[in-house]
Nucleic acid binder design. Structure first.
Length: 125
RNA sequence: CGGACCGGCCGGGUGGCCGCCGCGAGCGAUGGUCAGAAACGGCUAUUGCCUCGGGGAGGAAAGUCCGGGCUCCACCGGACGGGGUGCUGGGUAACGCCCAGGCUCCGGCGCGGGUAACCGGGCCGGGGACGGAAAGUGGCACAGAAACAUACCGCCGGCCCGUUUCUGGCGAGCCGGCAAGGGUGAAAUCGGACGGUAAGAGCGUCCGGCCGCGUGUGGCGACGCACCGGCGGCCAAACCCCACCUGGAGCAAGGCCAAAUAGAGGGACCAUGGGUGUCCGGCCCGUCCCCGGGUUGGCCGCUUGACCUCAGCGGUAACGCUGGGGCUAGAUAGAUGGUCACCAUCCGCUUCAUGCGGAUACAGAACCCGGCUUACAGGCCGUUCGGCGUU
RNA sequence: CGGGGUGUAGCGCAGUGGCUAGCGCGCCACGUUCGGGACGUGGAGGUCGGUGGUUCGAAUCCACUCACCCCGA
C-alpha cells in the first residue's frame, strides 16, 4: 500500500471515527467517511487486546493485503479496527470479513455527490 | 551406541505469482539557472500506478536492571547532603560486566592422623552481594538461671545446728570458691584426650580450631607459611563507619524551514550587545523566566561504527597491537510481506512399502553501542563423568 | 523514553523480622420466627503473585521476575 493511500493525520482519523458510518462483524469494525479526493485512504488500528507486537503487525499486514486486492472505489477515508479475535484468524477469514464490510458499506462505489460535500474542506489540503 | 552436567554455535530451505520501503542508474515531467538570435542543450532541485540493478528484523530486536558515546542545559573550585559499588589483580570508553587468582561453602573420589568422637590436607566439579562487629547506637521472640557480664539444679571447702554415733553418714542454714556435669535454646565463653586440683577452669601438655593495626618470610596484592601472644557470641540484604565512583536531562535530545495565531499580559534586568554618525545622558530595540494563544507538517540529526571479517604477533585468559579485505535496515502509525508448490523436522492415524491430516519455538528494529536478566521448537560441535556392546 | 504504585480469604482492606497472619462484607450450620429479613452463637475458607538469597526465624529485608494500574514529555 503506497503512501498516498495511507490515512495519517490524527485529526482526520478521529473525525472519521466520530462522524463516519460504522459497520462491524465478529473480527473487524469499519468506519467510513467521504473525503472528496480522487483516491481512498486507509488506516488500520490494532489495539493491545488483539495480541503482542508480532501478532498486531501480522494482522495489519494481512488487512493491507486484502484491501489492496479488493480495489475499492476512490473517494473514501476508512478506519479499519481489528477486534479481539483477529489475531487468531487466518488470512482467508480476514479476507471474508473485509469483503463483507466493503459490500455493506458500498465502498466499491464512489460516494454520492450530496454525501461528498462532507470532506471537501479537509480535501483542500 | 545412547545418557547427564557444563561451554560454544545455528535457529528452516528452494522456486513461481502478486505487493511494500530505502539506495543507485536510466527515462519522462515540472521549476530554477547558465550560454545562446533561436532550436538543440549543460548544471541543479523536486517528482513519478514508469523501467532496470542491488539491499531490507533478532539472538534475544524483549524487560529497561546497569555502563558509555552523542546532544542540549547548568558549571571558579571545594565541602556537606543524596545515590551507587564493596576480597585482590588485570581487561575495557565505562560498568554492578568479563578474565585470572585468593579465601570460603557444597558434592564426589581416594589419602593421612587418632581407641574413638572427629580432624587435616589432595584431586575433580559447582556456588558465594566476600570491606569493618577491638568507633558508636540498636536488636537477638519463645524457652532458659543467664542472650552480654550471668549461676537454677549442681560440685567443693569452711562455720554452725539437728539426728545417729564409727574420726563418718544423712538433713537444714550461712559464708566463700567453681563453671566440669544436667537442663533450655538457632546460638551458652573453643573441641577431644591426659595431667592437675578441695572441686575446678587453656591452669599445663598433646592433636586440632579461631583471633591479633605482634615478628619474620614468600607474593604487585587478596592471602599463605613459621614463630610469638591470646581465646565471650550472632546480625551491617539494622542504623552506621571506611574506601572508591557520581552535575541534570534525554533523539519527543537538539537544530533548520514552512504554515498558523493574539499578546501595549505579569515579573527579573546582574551581565552583555545593537540602532539613533561619534562621546555623555535620554529613547527604542534586546535578553531571561512565568502565564496565555497557535502549530502538532517537512528536512537534518539517521546510520562508517569502542563495526564486521581474515592473517600474524603479545598475553595463562579476558583482551590488545599491526596489516589486508568488506559496507551489512533506516521505517515515521511505522516497510522488511501475502499466497501457492516442493523439501526438511516433529506429532497423530493407518500401513509390507507407504499414504493422509496437522504443526514448525520465543518473538518485530525506532539515535547507536558494551553487558546483565528473562523467553525459546529443534539441531550441530567440544570438555568431563559414569553405562552398554565389540576388538 | 522517563517516573511512581499495587499484588494478603469470594470482594474491599489491615498487618513494629517472632505465638495458629487479622478486620469488615459475603458464605455455611444452628438458634430465634408461622416463614423471610434483621439479630445471636459457632464454623469453613490463605502456595501472603512467583523464584532465589540474608537470618536461628521472612507476608515483612535484599535481588531477579510476572501481571495490572497511574503520571510526565
Amino acid at each position: 500500500m503506497q503512501r498516498q493511500h495511507r490515512l495519517g493525520a490524527a485529526a482526520r482519523i478521529s473525525e472519521v471515527h466520530r462522524r463516519g458510518r460504522s459497520v462491524a462483524n465478529g473480527l473487524l469494525v469499519m468506519r467510513v467517511l467521504p473525503n472528496g479526493l480522487d483516491r481512498s485512504r486507509f488506516c488500520f488500528v490494532t489495539g493491545k487486546r488483539v495480541g503482542k507486537a508480532v501478532v498486531r503487525n501480522r494482522v495489519k499486514r494481512r488487512l493491507r493485503e486484502v484491501v489492496r486486492n479488493s480495489a475499492p472505489a476512490p473517494g473514501w477515508d476508512t478506519v479499519l479496527i481489528a477486534r479481539k479475535g483477529a489475531g487468531d484468524a487466518d488470512f482467508k477469514q480476514l479476507e471474508r470479513a473485509v469483503h463483507n464490510l466493503i459490500r455493506r458499506t458500498r465502498l466499491n462505489a464512489p460516494p454520492a455527490p450530496a454525501e461528498g460535500q462532507d470532506g471537501m474542506r479537509d480535501a483542500a489540503k
